[in-house]
Design a protein around this nucleic acid. Structure first.
Length: 572
RNA sequence: CGGGACGUAGCUCAGUCUGGUAGAGCACCGCCUUCGGGAGGCGGGGGUCGCAGGUUCAAAUCCUGUCGUCCCGACCA
């Protein structure tokens, strides 16, 4: 490719619309441009990176035996009503009516469509297992799109769906995808971690996320370096440690706490540690009120609570409902005398003489005790893990890290096949629902994550596997015929060798070219300058390293080709 | 949906408080010089100041509304 025949509109300054580094750099490098909130054009350079990631993904999916197809983005509402997600998915599903007034949506994911296809086309266990995948544009009307293409409303995703005859087969398919994902992300040059995750709106029995480790990541993950346990913060289990406090139960007492509501306020007003407080949160679990109890210094994990009840929706009750249930304004709720179901975190079990709200305005209770003053219906793990907690598997220290979710795999089981009546005939002649799995990779997000993970003050440092070009040939003096001639020669030799090379043939000053080459992150730079040329030499520089190397003109293109190979090998 | 910030040239921003001829740098076009880390000179083009009302002799500037953008949160995954 010739720079002058291509289109790479770079910016010198950070655009005001961007906050995080990958977003800034993608705009500056001329990779993407915003059309409206969460909607982007991939400019030629950005598209090249997208295609490189796609090709890695395609290559590895094919190797794993998955079969590529392409489903429509346009999806009729009927399918979503069959699966039950038309009502459940919420506003994130981009809905519309066609000219006849029929409900439809733009697909945020394709469980419904693939299940509809498979139930019509696959009828025998002999055709199983099978794994279909596609690389396609998805639509999710995110409530708050941000960070450029990291979280946007229209994005390219690889999604795959496996169908098996039984649990065992489904587990095998899941394991194959796990392995495949490790290979893919390795080839993308990521430092990443696979973590246990919640299944969210996709549903199913269990799932893992693949997180690229980066400080700016949206997700918090918890890892144990000793045993390898790793989980999304919201999923991370808390081990049931019962710290029984050995003290006599004191008489419960009501105290005045005028306008003292928050944990901090109560704690300092009564001069007790937040660990002596119990928070009572009134939640609506599928619209039924439940009181959730956690220690003052802990946070309720609503997802755990939702999963405990197997509920679809959960939310904190608003002021009116709290008033109705507790008889007091928000801030004074307590378990004593409550008529609704009470769920308490394990950490409450051993507490004695703690503080709670009194269900009266401006009153709290001190020296409250379980069993004597109120009953707990269920003890469960319903809080977020904290850095003070131990690894739920091995009991060692845990670390908190941040990550960018680039892949997510789900064991779906028969959730969709049952709901949509997708069955096959098994060996024994019986009709059975397919056991499914689904597997996603955010293609664009991979590009953003790569930048987030690897950049410096001059710009992007792409791993060679997803860089827009592998090599840039940079003639320094465009007014020197020899320099231009040699640069052209090298460019053509590399092209012939099958290298993805660009020559910066612009009549620009050297500084401009160097800065652009650094900004867009081309891994290998071959600089042709008249000084070195006099000695029959060229300069070779890796974007990832500071040092330059002079190489003999006669050794090109071999040295460069070897360098390319070397960089690829480092990603295996 | 709540809180905050912002909207002036392609980009980054000044000017708004205190109303009075719409600016700078970069980018773009032409000429000259320069040529290994975002060059310099001279000349030039480009903006209904987000939009709509209002106040005023006069509005980028003050008031009201509205749209859009970004950040934080809620929500969602």
């Amino acid at each position: 490719m010739r720079y002058t025949k291509y289109f790479i509109p770079t910016y010198k300054e950070d655009p005001s619309e961007a906050e995080v580094i990958s977003h800034k750099l993608m705009l500056r490098a001329g990779m993407i441009r915003k059309i409206t909130t969460g909607i982007y054009t991939y400019l030629p350079l950005g598209l090249r990176c997208i295609r490189k990631v796609e090709n890695i993904v395609r290559d590895e999916m094919n190797r794993a035996g998955a079969i590529e197809l392409l489903m429509p983005a346009f999806q009729p509402a009927e399918l979503w009503k069959e699966s039950g997600r038309w009502d459940y998915y919420g506003k994130e599903l981009l809905r519309f009516k066609d000219r006849y007034g029929r409900d439809a949506c733009l697909g945020p994911t394709h469980e419904e469509v693939i299940t509809a296809i498979v139930r019509n086309e696959i009828h025998s266990y002999k055709q199983l297992p099978v794994n279909f995948y596609q690389i396609q544009t998805k639509f999710r009307d995110e409530i708050r799109p941000r960070f450029g293409i990291m979280r946007c409303r229209e994005f390219i995703m690889k999604d795959a769906y496996s169908f098996d005859a039984d649990e065992e087969g489904a587990n095998k398919s899941y394991e194959i995808m796990k392995e495949t994902y490790h290979r893919i992300f390795k080839r993308c040059g990521f430092r990443f971690s696979m973590v246990e995750a919640d299944t969210g709106t996709i549903g199913g029995s269990y799932s893992h996320e693949f997180m690229v480790l980066a400080d700016t990541g949206e997700d918090q993950i918890v890892v144990c370096e000793k045993c390898g346990y790793a989980a999304n913060l919201e999923k991370a289990e808390v081990s049931e440690i019962a710290e029984f406090q050995d003290e006599p139960e004191l008489p419960m007492q009501e105290v005045d706490t005028p306008d003292i509501k928050s944990i901090e306020e109560v704690s300092s007003f009564l001069n007790v540690s937040p660990k002596k407080l119990v928070k009572t949160l009134i939640c609506l679990v599928d619209e039924k009120p439940v009181a959730a109890l956690v220690r003052g210094d802990h946070e309720l994990n609503e997802i755990k609570l939702r999963n405990l009840f197997g509920a679809e929706q959960i939310r904190l009750a608003d002021e009116e409902i709290v008033q109705e249930i507790t008889g007091a304004p928000v801030g004074f709720a307590g378990p004593v005398g409550l008529k609704i179901k009470i769920v308490a975190d394990h950490s409450i079990k051993g507490m004695k003489n703690f503080v709670t709200g009194a269900n009266k305005k401006d009153k709290h209770l001190i020296n409250v005790n379980i069993g004597r003053d109120f009953q707990v219906d269920t003890f469960a793990d319903i809080r977020f893990i904290t850095p003070q907690d131990r690894c739920p598997r091995c009991g060692n220290d845990i670390l908190f890290k941040r990550g960018i979710e680039v892949g997510h795999i789900f064991k779906l089981g028969t959730k969709y096949s049952k709901a949509m009546n997708a069955t096959f005939t098994d060996k024994d002649g019986k009709e059975k629902p397919f056991v499914m799995g689904c597997y996603g990779i955010g293609i664009g997000r991979c590009v953003a994550a790569a930048i987030e993970q690897s950049h410096d003050e001059n710009g992007i440092i792409f791993p060679i596997s997803i860089a827009p070009f592998e090599v840039i040939v940079l003639p320094v003096q465009m007014n020197d015929a020899d320099v231009v001639k040699e640069a052209e020669k090298i460019y053509h030799k590399l092209l012939e060798a099958g290298i993805d090379v660009i020559i910066d043939d612009r009549d620009e000053r050297a500084g401009v070219k160097f800065n652009d080459a650094d900004l867009i992150g081309i891994p290998i730079r071959v600089t042709v300058g008249k000084k070195a040329l006099k000695e029959q030499k060229l300069e070779l520089k890796l974007r990832s390293e500071k040092e330059k190397e002079l190489i003999p003109l006669s050794s090109v293109p071999e040295i460069v080709i070897n360098k390319v190979k070397e960089l690829y090998d480092s990603l295996k």
